[in-house]
Design a protein around this nucleic acid. Structure first.
Lengths: 162, 162
DNA sequence: TTCCTAATTGCGGCATGATGCAATAGCATT
DNA sequence: AATGCTATTGCATCATGCCGCAATTAGGAA
């Protein structure tokens, strides 16, 4: 199901409509994004662009990603290690679940985050940015595969897999 | 000089009990942490150490923070911008709420995250690491102030408790 | 007190991103 | 097709962290 260049045209027009420009570099980045499914880190995108054009400059990529995010074609959050994770063309806003054991990542259904968002909205008026939410922890498989012993000293109880 | 801030002695003994060492650098870092309340980024800690000892090496600080986290004296998560945020001596594990408008930060009460944790546990068996959770969005004040760039960098900052 | 061993340090370097600046190049107009 | 305005690019550099390596040193044993 390869979407034809259709969406590129859409992006190009969106850019122009805002007085922004359509450049070869941006086209390459969109090209890479179109071939991407799921999540990618910023440096993944840089790497993939370099595969097609070794001259690719990282800052150009990062700046373009910012622009695309502003236009709504992307969203990003931060993985458990703090690195950026981009989500292409999110159909509906959703958060992510990331396992610090296997690195696996899953989308959070609205049902999962509904209570959190509702409770916070009611109690503090805080508007949660779900698309930016990453919940980290251990998936069922990794827990079974060897959860670490708790043993924290002062009673703090922080478990670190190692 | 100096008051045996009890917890230093405790940390020192904890380190020794594990075959780790008590060094002047680690003592300085603990000293800085003891004078810290709430949240600090990694580079904040480096800066504060430098104020007291200009020779401070960043990698030593970061490595010591890792050790202290493993011992349970600290926990860290990532702010909305992906930078590390450390929480000193967390009495109870808790997540954080961070406003992308004013930069303010609040602790999340167990009641706020209870549903999320319980739902995920039940539906997927995923064990959420609450201490690593940062929920970002806009606080009530910033929403009212017009979601925009809302200038007002002054007055922002960290708010403790909730 | 002196020795020894391994934990730490400090340094240099890398990875991921952000940012200031001068040169380049879209693209709307003439 | 040439022109002019300014968005973008590419480069250099900085910020935040992580990591390998050789030299140092904490601290238990002799």
């Amino acid at each position: 199901m390869v979407e034809p260049a259709g969406s590129w045209v859409e992006v190009r027009d969106q850019l122009r409509a805002r007085g922004l420009r359509w450049t070869p570099q941006r086209r390459l980045i969109l090209d890479v994004l179109a071939a991407t499914s799921g999540h990618v880190t910023g440096s993944d995108i840089v790497d993939r662009c370099r595969e097609r054009d070794a001259e690719t400059t990282p800052s150009t990529v990062y700046r373009t990603l910012d622009v695309l995010e502003e236009l709504g074609y992307l969203s990003h959050s931060h993985g458990a290690d703090g690195r950026e994770e981009f989500h292409v063309l999110p159909e509906t806003e959703h958060g992510h679940l990331q396992c610090r054991g296997c690195g696996g990542s899953w989308e959070l259904a609205p049902a999962d985050t509904g209570h959190l968002v509702g409770d916070l909205e009611r109690s503090t008026g805080f508007a949660v940015d779900i698309g930016h939410l990453t919940v980290s922890g251990l998936c069922a498989t990794c827990q079974a595969a060897g959860a670490g012993p708790a043993g924290a000293p002062g009673g703090a109880g922080y478990i670190e897999g190692r």
